[in-house]
Design a protein around this nucleic acid. Sequence first.
DNA 1: AAGAGTTTGTGAACGCGAGAACAAACTGAG
DNA 2: CTCAGTTTGTTCTCGCGTTCACAAACTCTT
Lengths: 220, 220
Amino acid sequence: MSPTRIPEATVARLPVYLRALNALLEGDIRTCSSEELATAAGVNSAKLRKDLSHLGSYGTRGVGYDVEYLRYQISREIGLTQDWPVVIVGIGNLGHALANYSGFSSRGFRTVALLDADTSRHGELVAGLQIRPFTELAAIVREHGVAIGVIATPAAAAQSVCDSMVGAGIRSILNFAPSVLSVPEEVDVRMVDLSSELQILAYHEQRKSNGGPDLEGVPA
Amino acid sequence: MSPTRIPEATVARLPVYLRALNALLEGDIRTCSSEELATAAGVNSAKLRKDLSHLGSYGTRGVGYDVEYLRYQISREIGLTQDWPVVIVGIGNLGHALANYSGFSSRGFRTVALLDADTSRHGELVAGLQIRPFTELAAIVREHGVAIGVIATPAAAAQSVCDSMVGAGIRSILNFAPSVLSVPEEVDVRMVDLSSELQILAYHEQRKSNGGPDLEGVPA
DNA sequence: AAGAGTTTGTGAACGCGAGAACAAACTGAG
DNA sequence: CTCAGTTTGTTCTCGCGTTCACAAACTCTT
Ligand SMILES: NC(=O)c1ccc[n+]([C@@H]2O[C@H](COP(=O)([O-])OP(=O)(O)OC[C@H]3O[C@@H](n4cnc5c(N)ncnc54)[C@H](O)[C@@H]3O)[C@@H](O)[C@H]2O)c1
Ligand SMILES: NC(=O)c1ccc[n+]([C@@H]2O[C@H](COP(=O)([O-])OP(=O)(O)OC[C@H]3O[C@@H](n4cnc5c(N)ncnc54)[C@H](O)[C@@H]3O)[C@@H](O)[C@H]2O)c1
């Protein structure tokens, strides 16, 4: 069905399109043009069309796209038609927020376990799940067929947790700890670095202030 | 001092280099080669050198980089030598975690206010700050000279919160709500979409399972 | 049925970023 | 001082992603 590999940049935008399509459906809009969908997703319409063309020809010329049909096709392409068990390791401030986040489960991601090394937290109920010892990782992965792991521990523990995850058979990791993880070739790591995001904003903000009114900060 | 514009891809990596340099300094390493720093940052050494060359010539051929000096130069370039007041709007699960996160304040980002529309939360103490009414936004921005705002409200409220921020004079926004924000030209928005990250992992995971052993799912 | 009006899918041009490869510049030994 | 060794800064090439522009394909009116 999808013989060609989809460009990475396109893959990263598919979830955005999916969100836009869901929003349209909630407004009872059954059909949309690439222009409308692109606006809703915040991208160029040409880019959107090219992205979608990588999945196949799901639109109709002169008409547009059937919202529900396109949503299904994108979901299938990403793999959201199946259910993905997820484990979260490190149930501190961030881990709590993630465990309570409904946006994950609503998209086919099912948190099957919350793990923490701190014994004093074991048994504590978070979002309907008990916090369990980190040592149970391998058993849980095996039992539920977990493929995706989330790391929300301090940076110092991240690599070690990562190694255990890989050892247990997890092949996709979402890392919130500000730490570069080294993993085997076949394992995917995506890093979410909130501090970096703020720093990038700060860089541009500084540029706006300095480069704006006067070029040099020192007057004659 | 920095006449040429720095490529966006480079800007996005500077915070990573900064982290790596901090880690080296903690290990009392005063000097490093591009190779060492690149390994610590998880990038190619040629890329690192090219990135740094955009800031200036801060290394010494045959020797390498002075860790502390380079760290200062990158900090200055990003704008971390000054202090950035930040407001967080929407103190729910995620807002709490962000407010409690020490990684922000340690890098020159100072949370000056936590705002929420829910009156029943006002006055509640989070990370040493009282939750205040959202209506005080403009006054707080004016008083503290806030340039950076963080949105951690539900998606339905995000655009409205964003508009208020822009109206109050905020020009850089970090958005955690899964919602495309429309802003004037001069305002920067960075989106952190955790759900998208998981979906991207799922896509690759699906590929690994299907495309791995056999090319077609159906044997002869 | 034909033609005007729409909208998709794609070919082609362009620009940016990644990586290899090398010259310039520094250190240190003899 | 000279020369070998090291490491940076930069040039060059290549590939990817973005955008424009247009032909192909569809609808609807007359
Ligand atoms: N809180 C935020 O908003 C925020 C924002 C950006 C990044 N982060 C990063 O996310 C990570 C977690 O942040 P946090 O604020 O939740 O920290 P936290 O200290 O509140 O929670 C960390 C949790 O990890 C557990 N832990 C420690 N070592 C472990 C190990 N080896 N195995 C399993 N569990 C272990 C601890 O017991 C604790 O419960 C940190 O790396 C932080 O830098 C957090
Ligand atoms: N919790 C997570 O881990 C997580 C992960 C990814 C994304 N998100 C996104 O982050 C946002 C917040 O998530 P959450 O789990 O903290 O939700 P939450 O419901 O716990 O918190 C939202 C807060 O925003 C406040 N609020 C609502 N409307 C407001 C308005 N107009 N002005 C000011 N404040 C307002 C609410 O009173 C509430 O306190 C959501 O958009 C969610 O999709 C959360």
